Simulated assay, not measured.
Amino acid sequence: MKLADIYILQQLWESALVTLKEAEQISPNDDDILKRELYVSLYLEPPQSFRTALPIAEKLISNPNTANDPAVRLWQAAALGQKFKYLYDAGESLSSAGETESAESVRSKALQAVRAVVQLAPDPNSAPRIFLRRIFDPAREQSPPAENDLEVFKGDADFELAIYGGEQESRAPAGHGSR
């Protein structure tokens, strides 16, 4: 684990992931190792990033010990954002790559993951919620521009509402919601 931490600090993502996989073989039921694998996999190049991250996220979500961890849902949302962008940039579904998921299906899953983060971390000032806003709109949140896994959904009203909540209501046109 310490070696993986060193690789992470050096941003040697593939080396970190290989080292974490070795640690997982030694301790196969260690949730912390899986969570680190999930996090590290997001820094690989797409499509390897989301193809590695999403099965790990599903494994963690199906585990009662980590199912309600907002960080797991946050990283799942990030991986889905990467997958959506990959599909969007390719202008096609992944069917040509041997997969059959549509961009709309990925968008729906990403929105579901974002809503899970908000539900599991209701405090807007909690770390998961702050990071969620940062990867959605780095310019607005004054965060590193490269940390933008959900930025592909910027301007999508459903994502705006899920992530910013009440702030969106104040931007609604006059007459909406009033009697």
Rank of each mutant, 00 (worst) to 15 (best):
A174P: 04
L54Y: 04
D89I: 11
R134E: 13
L54D: 01
N29K: 13
Q11M: 03
D89E: 13
V40K: 09
P124R: 11
G177Y: 05
G81I: 01
I163C: 06
R115T: 04
V114S: 01
V152T: 09
V106M: 08
N148Y: 10
I26P: 03
P70K: 00
N63T: 12
Y43P: 04
P64K: 15
G98R: 09
P46R: 14
R134A: 08
R73D: 04
A157I: 09
I163V: 07
N125I: 01
I163D: 13
I163M: 02
F136W: 03
Q142E: 14
A23V: 05
S49L: 00
Q168E: 05
N63C: 12
Y86P: 02
E104G: 12
A116V: 00
A53R: 01
P122I: 03
R140E: 13
G91P: 10
L80V: 05
I61M: 06
E92V: 06
V18H: 11
T52W: 01
R171W: 14
V114C: 09
D32I: 04
V40G: 05
E101F: 04
F131P: 03
R179P: 05
L9H: 09
Q76M: 06
E24P: 01
N125D: 11
V40R: 05
S41R: 03
S96L: 13
Y43Q: 03
F136H: 13
P28H: 00
A67C: 05
D69N: 10
E92R: 15
T100F: 07
G166P: 14
L34M: 02
E45F: 04
L74F: 14
E24H: 07
E37K: 08
P144T: 13
L132Q: 03
R36Q: 08
G155M: 15
N29A: 12
L20W: 08
T66W: 04
N63Y: 08
F153N: 05
R51A: 07
A67T: 12
I61Y: 13
Y88C: 02
R134C: 12
L132N: 03
A4K: 01
A157G: 13
L74G: 09
D137E: 10
D5G: 01
K59M: 10
P46W: 15
V114R: 02
P173N: 10
E141V: 11
E151Q: 11
G166W: 04
R129W: 14
S126I: 06
A79G: 15
K59P: 10
L20E: 03
L60F: 09
A16F: 14
K83T: 08
R36I: 02
A57S: 09
V114N: 01
A174W: 07
Q82F: 07
Y88A: 04
T100A: 03
A139D: 15
L74W: 08
A97R: 13
D137L: 11
I33Q: 02
S108H: 03
A79E: 08
Q48R: 13
G81C: 08
M1V: 08
N29H: 07
V40E: 14
F136E: 06
R134V: 04
M1T: 10
Y43A: 02
R51Y: 12
K83M: 15
P145L: 15
Y88S: 11
L20A: 01
F159V: 15
K21V: 13
